[in-house]
C-alpha cells in the first residue's frame, strides 16, 4: 500500500487501518485493508440490514493552492464537494455534476480535470490548484487578466472552470490556431454564449504566457 496520509490528528487513522485490516481482510493481511471507512467493516449486525451505514469519515490531507488542509471526509466525497463543502472554497463551481459542463475544472499537478468526477481521497499526495490559487497576491494570473480584458463571460458561473481549463490548455501546449482553441476549450460549456470572447481571451493569454 502507498503511504496514505492518515497521520496528522493524533494517529487516529493508524488505529482505524489496523481495525479495518482485521475486520475485513481476514487472512489476507492488513496490506489489503481499505484505507478509508467501509460499510462492510462498520459494526452493523447482520440482523439489521436496514441500519444506516456507519459514518466512515476518515482524515486526510489535501494540498490546495500551496496549503495543506486536514479534512475528515468519507471516501465518497468528490473533490468539488470537498473543496466547497469542507474547505469553504466556493470558487470552484458545481454545474452538471456529471462531467458534462466543465464548471468544476481544477488543476491537479498542473493538469486540468473535472473535480466532480474524481474523489478527494484519490488526490491526497497531489497539488490541487483552484481559481483561488491562480493570482499571485494582488497580481492576477495572465489568463484572468485576459478574461477581463476580453470580457470572456457574462453571468460568470462557468468562468472559474473556463479559466482553470485555459491555464491547463496553455500548459499542455498542443494549441495554436483559433480552431484548436475552440476544440481545446470544448470541455467548458458557457450558457451565456461568451465563446468568441473566451477564444479571444485565451489567444491573448497564450501570447503573454
Amino acid at each position: 500500500m502507498d503511504n496514505f496520509e492518515e497521520q496528522g490528528k493524533g494517529g487516529e487513522g493508524v488505529s482505524r487501518r489496523g481495525l479495518l485490516g482485521a475486520a475485513i481482510t481476514g487472512g489476507a493481511g492488513a496490506a489489503l485493508a481499505p484505507l478509508l471507512g467501509n460499510r462492510a467493516a462498520a459494526a452493523v449486525p447482520a440482523s439489521s440490514p436496514s441500519a444506516p451505514p456507519a459514518s466512515s469519515a476518515a482524515g486526510m490531507t489535501l494540498h490546495v493552492n500551496g496549503q495543506a488542509h486536514w479534512v475528515e471526509i468519507e471516501p465518497r466525497v468528490t473533490l468539488v464537494d470537498a473543496l466547497r463543502d469542507h474547505l469553504g472554497m466556493y470558487g470552484t463551481k458545481k454545474g452538471c455534476d456529471h462531467g458534462q459542463c466543465g464548471a468544476c475544472t481544477v488543476l491537479i499537478n498542473g493538469v486540468r480535470v473535472n473535480s466532480c468526477l474524481t474523489l478527494a481521497a484519490m488526490h491526497t499526495n497531489e497539488e490541487i490548484t483552484t481559481i483561488e490559487g491562480l493570482a499571485d497576491g494582488d497580481r492576477l494570473h495572465p489568463v484572468q487578466e485576459a478574461f477581463i480584458e476580453h470580457d470572456g463571460f457574462q453571468c460568470g458561473y462557468c468562468t472559474p472552470g473556463q479559466i482553470c481549463s485555459a491555464v491547463g490548455l496553455i500548459h499542455e501546449g498542443h494549441t495554436k490556431t483559433d480552431d484548436q482553441i475552440r476544440e481545446g476549450m470544448a470541455g467548458n460549456i458557457c450558457r451565456c454564449g461568451a465563446y468568441s470572447n473566451i477564444v479571444d481571451a485565451v489567444k491573448k493569454a497564450m501570447k503573454v504566457s
Partner: peptide, 15 residues
C-alpha cells in the same frame, strides 16, 4: 451515492 470504502493497492496481485 452509497457508502463505500477506498483502497489503494500498489501491486496488481494485491488489486
Amino acid at each position: 451515492m452509497n457508502d463505500f470504502s477506498y483502497s489503494r493497492p500498489t501491486t496488481t496481485t494485491e488489486a
